[in-house]
Design a protein around this nucleic acid. Sequence first.
DNA 1: TTGTAGGCGTTATCAT
DNA 2: ATGATAACGCCTACAA
Lengths: 337, 337
Amino acid sequence: MNRKPIKITDIAALAGVSIATVSRAIGKSGPVSQDARRRIEAALLATGYTPNNVGRGLRRREARAIIVVVPDVGNPYFSALLRGIEERAVAIGYSVLIGNGANNREREAVYGQHAMAGRADGLILINGRLPYAESVVDTRLPPIVLVSERIARVGLPLVGVDNVRAARDAVSHLLQLGHRRIGYIGGTPRSLLTADREAGYRKALAIHGLDIAKDWVAYGDFTVESGEQSAQRLLDLDRPPTAIFACNDEMAIGAISAAKARSMRVPDDISIVGFDDIPFAASYDPPLTTVRQPFFEMGAAAMDMMIQLIAGQVPARRKVLLPTELVIRKSASVPSS
Amino acid sequence: MNRKPIKITDIAALAGVSIATVSRAIGKSGPVSQDARRRIEAALLATGYTPNNVGRGLRRREARAIIVVVPDVGNPYFSALLRGIEERAVAIGYSVLIGNGANNREREAVYGQHAMAGRADGLILINGRLPYAESVVDTRLPPIVLVSERIARVGLPLVGVDNVRAARDAVSHLLQLGHRRIGYIGGTPRSLLTADREAGYRKALAIHGLDIAKDWVAYGDFTVESGEQSAQRLLDLDRPPTAIFACNDEMAIGAISAAKARSMRVPDDISIVGFDDIPFAASYDPPLTTVRQPFFEMGAAAMDMMIQLIAGQVPARRKVLLPTELVIRKSASVPSS
DNA sequence: TTGTAGGCGTTATCAT
DNA sequence: ATGATAACGCCTACAA
């Protein structure tokens, strides 16, 4: 219990030099004689000294940490993103603080506070919502980078994918397989993700000159259960779709459940395509055909952008769109009818 | 880009008092007159001032943050754990730094360094491995709490479950259903988790006076693929087991895949039980019968213990074992043969 | 090449 | 009840 940290003074005493020299030696921030350097390094080794981050941070006016606010750490979708961020952060000696928004505005606001209290030098938001009143935007906040979901009306730097295009490609795949009646399951209607992917869906059908029955579009809330329920609605129609494009993999899995529950085979009786390619997509039965988002790369790109921003540089692009890839597995095939 | 933080001096000037009084007012650490308090609060409101965490940390010699080292943030298993930790941490104004060990000793060591650099007041380890040489244990490190996996030979405080007992209960369930030939798929052989759960498996069979054929035990590495391969080995036996208990859900899912691949029906032709109850266990086909670990509660308990440790208190118990629960879904039933 | 000293923003001690 | 002032651990002019 009686931890007593080693301080720069201890090293200085051991090496028989001043703390300034030690600091210069450690930070390579100034000239140090061979002789002094040798003795300092010996002391360093003997003690295992590591500079105190708090003292250093105070002096340098930085925290060397960033906060990542996610809507819910429970979502597997974020883990690869976090890995990407973490990978880059660690490389330059930054820490990643995880902020679990818990889908809750107040909880998210806590991290805005933390940022303003100097706990972090930057904020990466993965939830499409600002953790503070918009009025504060330009004053006491560190740099902010958005990932995945843009925020309406706010021109913040963003790393994401082209959702419209990706959705269009996924639905085009279904069309090429021969489907003509294709349903869409969106997430929460207000989400821009839902809207963008729906736009892509509509565009693909429009290109083929196909009309969309109003009944073919249903909205859930990104959960497996909501996907199940939405699919039930679509399947209950008089002329149900022969294929469904779901806005994320969880809902696609829910849709498959719903189909199986009424003894339909996937993909023989109905084709289903998801979005994200979460870790479990490949292990599901049938393995999910889905749009892969390059989560790791997105996280890395976001952190790279953040590093530039923190350094006071203007990033090359304020909007980085990474390519998606349609991963064709077994949940979609030619229509039977 | 020209953020200029508000400092305590600004508040003092605005309120017409000394910084000492402001500090007392904010921290409720001393007497402040009604009048002064009113003026200070007005200034606080007007500026939106938040005390700088770094300055405070330096003075108070604390970081008000803890580091959680996980083997791989990509694993869904950890997310609920993180939520539990985060929930408690946030309640007392602590930050959670996430340390992605990436199953890599060097990467893990980084977080030991961070801790020693005063970046965090505590270390929660979820990987059964120390992020530093054992020789440093008692010197410059903050309090440590282990979660889930104990570390051999090191008497650190632990929050987990009774793996032996939980595994025994799961296998007993299989026995009660009527199975007599039961296989076990473990994780990496060196892992204590693997060993403990295997011990429970053996104990259950021993109680029933059943012998275990050497071939019935296979080891993977906790991944879906390894579960698939291990199950193939078991299924290839002349007299294959009628049921398999897998050390975690991923491997159980892999085992189900393997069974399906050879046109066996689960649970009709073979019963499979997992461990963990990860989010996807319920959505799989068939929904997985598994041992639920109370991850959220484990995280919360670990953080509670950490809070005590940081406060210099001796925790009530150095080893907290939380109850597991066998969740009976559809992947195990009475044997057909 | 080296050391002294001031300051980063806050809290705590000690007079007043 | 209040206000100077001295730390906290580190870095960096500046002087030597």
